[in-house]
């Protein structure tokens, strides 16, 4: 008996289990409450269905959250991602007017990396608090995006560009593959190179890692550049999906959702270990919640309320202190 409880507790310690559980619960709820939620149709060589939609719509959030995982692991934060998304989207659509698609994409990615490097420079070289350093770009960013678009919504008809937001590959939306690619790249970076270890070490303790011969500055620069790149990929997806760039509204408040996704995914905001898989699950959870709310036809007014309650619950479940409330004191003594 004690053994069983102990193994349950060990599973409970694995941070990925909680977001997975939350996602599973939500899915079971959908299975019961929304008929046809899991039905998938196949026509025109494409898959259609709510689940496919979740994959598709979660992509900007998931990709940004993946990048965000790195900086949160560094005990940092990047609240400028929404603005960078808007800048990159504006840049992409702007460059399509007169340049080939690949240049537009490179320009969008380039400006995103540039934004990331700017953030990284403020944080690592000037040593400014991450939240404030990125607050600057959050404030200025939309102004820059508006300068690019000239303050109006610009659009494009380029088929090759919009493919990145609307296209299908092997019957699945292209965005699903983009999530996979970004995830795979970061996963390789984490497990096959020393970079992941360095990030965790710097996030755990800067001083200790410096004495161990790691250079926190360059690790931070690279990480913020990666977030910038992720945000610009998301910006390309969003602008390609709509075929237009809206400097004011694209990616508004996405930074909050991205941070939530990371935290739900089990990465602590106090830095250290990070879980890329958990982040993806967190992002999917948030998007499923949104889709569920839409499908249920919950009145528009109460969406935020539902979201707030779910967020608090998920975070509470993840908290060790909260879980202890439900483990009887006597048993706990035995286990430990």
């Amino acid at each position: 008996m004690a053994n069983l409880t102990a193994s349950v507790r060990n599973i409970g310690r694995n941070p990925i289990i909680w977001p997975l559980l939350a996602l599973a619960l939500l899915m079971i709820f959908n299975l019961i409450a929304i008929p046809g939620f899991f039905s998938i149709e196949f026509h025109d060589g494409r898959l259609f269905g709510s689940v496919v939609d979740i994959l598709k719509n979660a992509s900007p959030l998931a990709i940004i959250a993946l990048g965000m995982t790195l900086v949160i692991a560094l005990e940092g934060i990047d609240i400028s991602v929404g603005s960078v998304l808007a800048i990159a989207g504006a840049m992409g659509i702007f460059m399509l007017d007169g340049y080939p698609t690949w240049i537009a994409i490179l320009a969008a990615l380039g400006i995103g990396v540039l934004c990331g490097l700017w953030n990284g420079m403020l944080i690592s070289i000037l040593g400014i608090q991450p939240m404030v350093a990125t607050l600057i770009l959050l404030t200025i960013g939309r102004g820059i995006a508006q300068l690019i678009t000239g303050g109006r919504i610009i659009d494009t008809t380029s088929a090759s560009y919009t493919f990145l937001g609307k296209g299908y590959f092997l019957g699945l939306p292209i965005q699903a593959f983009l999530i996979l690619i970004v995830f795979a790249l970061l996963y390789v970076l984490k497990t096959r190179t020393a970079f992941g270890l360095f990030v965790e070490s710097v996030g755990g303790s800067k001083t200790a890692s410096r004495y161990a011969g790691i250079r926190p500055r360059s690790i931070m620069m690279i990480s913020y550049a990666i977030v910038g790149a992720c945000a610009s990929v998301a910006g390309i997806i969003v602008s390609a999906n709509l075929g237009s760039a809206d400097a004011n509204n694209a990616g508004l408040w996405i930074e909050l959702d991205a941070i939530l996704a990371v935290v739900i995914g089990g990465t602590s905001m106090r830095g250290g270990r990070f879980y890329l898989g958990g982040t993806v699950i967190g992002a999917l959870f948030i998007q499923s919640l949104t889709t569920t709310i839409y499908s249920l036809g919950v009145p528009a007014e109460s969406i935020l309320l539902v979201k707030a309650i779910v967020v608090i619950l998920v975070c509470l479940i993840q908290s060790e202190a909260f879980r202890k409330l439900f483990v009887p004191v006597g048993k706990k003594a035995i286990i430990e």
Binding site: I77, L256, I259, L260, V263, S268, M269, R270, A300, E301, S302, I303, L304, L305, V306, K307, A308, I309, V311, I312, C315, L316, S319, E320, A321, F322
Partner: peptide
């Protein structure tokens, strides 16, 4: 519960806005 202030007050932000809606 040793939650990060960012997350708690973020939820608080949603909650307060949601109640006013």
């Amino acid at each position: 519960f040793q939650l990060h202030p960012w997350i708690v007050t973020l939820a608080g932000m949603f909650l307060a806005r949601g109640i006013s809606f």
